[in-house]
Amino acid sequence: MLKQRGDRCWTYEEPLRFLGLEIGRIMTVIRLSSGGLFVQSPAELTPELQSALDELGDVRFVAPASKLHGHLYMEQYRAVYPNAELLAAPGLPARRPDLQFDQLLGDTPDPRWAPDIDQVAIVGHRWLTELAYVHRPSRTVILGDVGFHIGEGSPLTTRLVARALRVYKQIGPPLEFRLTIANEASFRRSIQDVLAWEFDRVVPGHGEIIDTGGKRAVLEGYDWLL
């Protein structure tokens, strides 16, 4: 259920259909040096997933990638883990007024997870700011919608559409996202900040995980920008 991806880092993949296409989504779980769990893009909290998480530690932080990605099941985590803090991406509090958030995320990591995790706010898009994370001990970068990576394991229709959107076998945002970047210089600086990290693995928001060669894959996927 939870697959270990290096030192104190696990992923969990679940199906997701969007506009009739199966694109999947990925949750990342990091056990902090303090022992608590940092959960990014939380999946549906089934009894089986809850049991698996409880074996790893106490859920302390639940984080999205953006106001669109990784917030759907946050209320389940608040109900089951009342001491866990829900973290908000820019724009998410207005989108989810039903939730009480504990912190609004930006470029600076909280001191409680900063020893393990760094983060960058990817800015420059017309209406979306996304948070990218790096888990230093496992050399893993974690993305959302700026990191589609559809591969051969996806259904044929998904692969065909991904090819048209330029995210088939390459990592990056789909074409319509690229066309709605308002400030290309700011967006480029954000991606360069991600590339300044030391990492080898990339966990995309949708598609297939890149377990090795991730930095090269991001460079190649973003050659249109860089």
Rank of each mutant, 00 (worst) to 15 (best):
H71Q: 00
L104A: 03
E48N: 03
E13L: 07
T158Y: 11
R78Q: 15
Q50W: 07
D58Q: 15
V141M: 08
D118E: 15
V146I: 15
P64Q: 01
I122V: 15
G91F: 08
A182S: 09
E48C: 00
Q192Y: 01
R60N: 05
P109C: 09
K3E: 15
L37C: 01
L131Q: 12
E22L: 10
V203A: 01
H135E: 11
I26L: 10
S154Y: 13
P155V: 05
E55G: 07
T157R: 15
P204F: 09
P115Y: 05
D7L: 13
Y222W: 12
I117M: 06
S33I: 04
V123K: 14
G205E: 06
A121P: 03
L21P: 10
M27R: 01
Q100F: 03
A94V: 02
I117R: 07
G20L: 06
L72A: 14
A114H: 08
S138H: 00
L195V: 14
K67Y: 06
V62W: 03
V120L: 04
R17H: 13
Q103F: 07
T11E: 02
W224N: 09
F18Y: 10
F101N: 08
D118Y: 01
V62G: 05
V167W: 03
S186F: 04
S34I: 01
G153F: 06
L56Q: 14
I209Q: 00
E208D: 15
R189D: 15
